[in-house]
Design a protein around this nucleic acid. Structure first.
Lengths: 139, 139
DNA sequence: TCCTACAATGGACTTAGTCCAAGTCAAGTG
DNA sequence: CACTTGACTTGGACTAAGTCCATTGTAGGA
């Protein structure tokens, strides 16, 4: 059930109750929780878990490349466990909801070398912005 | 000299010393200052200016569409006066430096309607990430 | 079972930004 | 020019999100 947990275990991660619940909370598709939301859900399963541990664990998962950090504005970062399949994001300008999207085309190929200013370019993120159906309805 | 200032004046903006210095600080190409940097430079020209005024003024410029807010991570937002010409950004993962870039292609056209989940899509941002020449050299 | 290095805790601290009540001033009016 | 008024500015208190750190706890190997 928990692909994420399996992958982490496979990397020789020292398994603790805290890490397990964080991984469980984060598992799934179209999951884009803030650190505080992850903490709230983790507390439901393991009441003693601390905020600092949630931050530490999320940070480690990001370092391991198993989770992607998405910051679309100055609100809280969101954590996306869908790291194994490349995708971009569609964000609601009103409520901050995120959906994964898979646009056609390769934006990396669209950046000519004379526009790279000597940078070593390693990645690209595409963020579509708009209003989600829910916000459009409740206007 | 100050295109930005001219445009703002043309919209019937009430002109004050504070707004003038903020607009002056922000004018130019490849300018991507944080609010605090704007404040620091504004203070050099007008020592009494307050942080709150800088935030207010930047916010109004964004609302008027004369300045673009760029948040590439959870660090401070940056303000880009180059709002009249569409472009994207190339960000140094190490030091946060930003360059404007003009990739080929139209990412809006790459998002099919069955990937829009009912959103009204209004815009798209493309953020290339990498290491700038300075950080590569001193890294 | 015992050790020990790695992990978790929670509270203090930091950064970036927002809010607000009170004071100030640009610019239109007479 | 003086007056008026509502928009603008101020600075300090407040908030949200996240980081840091000394202490305590524990997974997993010997």
């Amino acid at each position: 059930m928990s692909d994420l947990l399996e992958r982490l275990r496979g990397r020789g991660w020292r398994m603790t109750a805290q890490r397990r619940v964080v991984a469980e909370v984060l598992d799934g598709d179209h999951v884009h929780l803030t650190a505080d939301e992850v903490h709230a859900r983790a507390v439901a399963k393991l009441p003693e878990i601390s905020r600092a541990t949630v931050y530490n664990t999320l940070g480690e998962m990001v370092t391991l490349g198993e989770v992607i950090e998405v910051s679309t504005d100055r609100r809280a970062k969101r954590y996306d466990p869908n790291a194994h399949r490349p995708h971009h994001h569609l964000v609601c300008a009103n409520c901050g909801t995120i959906r994964d999207v898979h646009p056609a085309g390769d934006p990396m190929a669209d950046l000519p070398s004379d526009e790279r200013f000597g940078f070593t370019v390693s990645g690209v993120e595409v963020t579509y912005r708009g209003i989600c159906p829910t916000c459009a309805a409740t206007g």
